[in-house]
């Protein structure tokens, strides 16, 4: 459990963070989201003490983080940066197990662990373990970086804008990978991003931060449905599902004309979303024509629009 208690951070007159109180439970995937310069990364770096707060205390499992042994603390914590930050002179295997090497784990053991982890992040282990980072693509490098963060089987992994530098397709893949891994391991993950789509997709809970203040903490639906203030509402506005026009929907291969009559007449896509499902189908009439679409196709169509 991570507890921020009255945390403040200031460089001279420049206040970065003010009175932050936040508790992150074990096993949670917690996302800190906010525009750049909001202080979210600073908040993250306090956990592994790359930054020390100027006020308040941070507690890890009930003990002040500064009372933990720094080396042990960091050795048992995963960290994934924005760039993959793999060490260019070390093989993929050595990169993944660098913390184990520091902890004095035997070479054979390390190799075994590296192979396991590569498989877990969906890479051909034997093929990649001896390669150097520059031989891998950007997405592969970031997978390795995630594997590296899991090497010491940490209770906690910190991720700082870890997918922000990837293109949308790769980003989606990595997000799915993270969700899958998190589900399997139930490791606590604190994830920082400026992308609210990403926050909504990943977070068990989300903390919205702006100008050094924590504006709201809640589940994605809480934040979408009951934004605490105008900023939060505006920030997530564009994240509301984009439904597109009727013309777009009708042009998709999912909608089929039917001979059935008396379907409910609709004018907007929103109205289809609230129709009752009839044997897996949504049936509607638009400008005198009758159509039907399976619910799963409809959701799939909306999902694709969201990207």
């Amino acid at each position: 459990m991570i507890e921020y208690r009255d945390i403040g951070m200031a460089y001279g007159d420049n206040v970065i963070l003010e009175k932050i109180n936040l508790t992150i439970a074990d096993g949670e995937l917690f996302v800190l989201v906010g525009p750049s310069g909001s202080g979210k990364t600073t908040l993250l770096r306090m956990i592994n003490r790359l930054t020390e707060p100027s006020q308040g205390d941070l507690y890890l499992d009930g003990k002040r983080v500064k009372d933990h042994d720094l080396r042990q603390l960091r050795l048992h914590m995963g960290y994934v940066l924005q760039t993959s930050s793999l060490f260019p002179n070390l093989t993929i295997g050595d990169n993944i197990t660098i913390q184990l090497e520091e902890a004095g784990v035997k070479k054979a053991e390390r190799r075994k662990r590296a192979l396991e982890l590569l498989e877990q992040v969906g890479m051909e282990a034997e093929k990649y373990i001896s390669r150097l980072p520059h031989e891998l693509s950007g997405g592969q490098q970031q997978r390795v970086a995630i594997a590296r963060a899991m090497a010491s089987q940490p209770k906690l992994i910190l991720m700082d804008e870890s997918f922000s530098a990837l293109d949308p397709v790769l980003r989606r893949q990595q997000q799915e990978l993270l969700l899958k891994l998190h589900q399997q391991s139930k490791t606590t993950v604190v994830f920082v991003t400026h992308d609210m789509q990403e926050a909504l997709r990943l977070g068990d809970r989300i903390g919205v931060i702006k100008d050094g203040h924590l504006r709201q903490v809640g589940t994605p639906s809480e934040i979408l449905q009951k934004p605490a203030d105008q900023f939060v509402a505006d920030f997530f506005k564009s994240a509301r599902p984009r439904l597109g026009t009727m013309a777009e929907l009708l042009a998709s291969p999912y909608t089929k004309k039917t001979k059935e009559k008396n379907s409910q007449s609709v004018n907007k896509v929103e109205e289809i979303a609230v129709l009752p499902e009839i044997a897996g189908y949504l049936k509607f009439a638009y400008q005198g024509e009758n159509y039907q679409i399976t619910t799963s196709d409809f959701l799939h169509y909306l999902g694709k629009l969201g990207d």
């Binding site: 720094l70 080396r71 930050s85 060490f87 260019p88 070390l90 520091e102």
Partner: peptide
Amino acid sequence: PNLEEAADAFGLSKRRKMFRLEVPM
């Protein structure tokens, strides 16, 4: 600097950081 930070965040000792990472790089 990201690599330096990563090395610190992983809890590497000064020695290992120097001889395993800095010198070879």
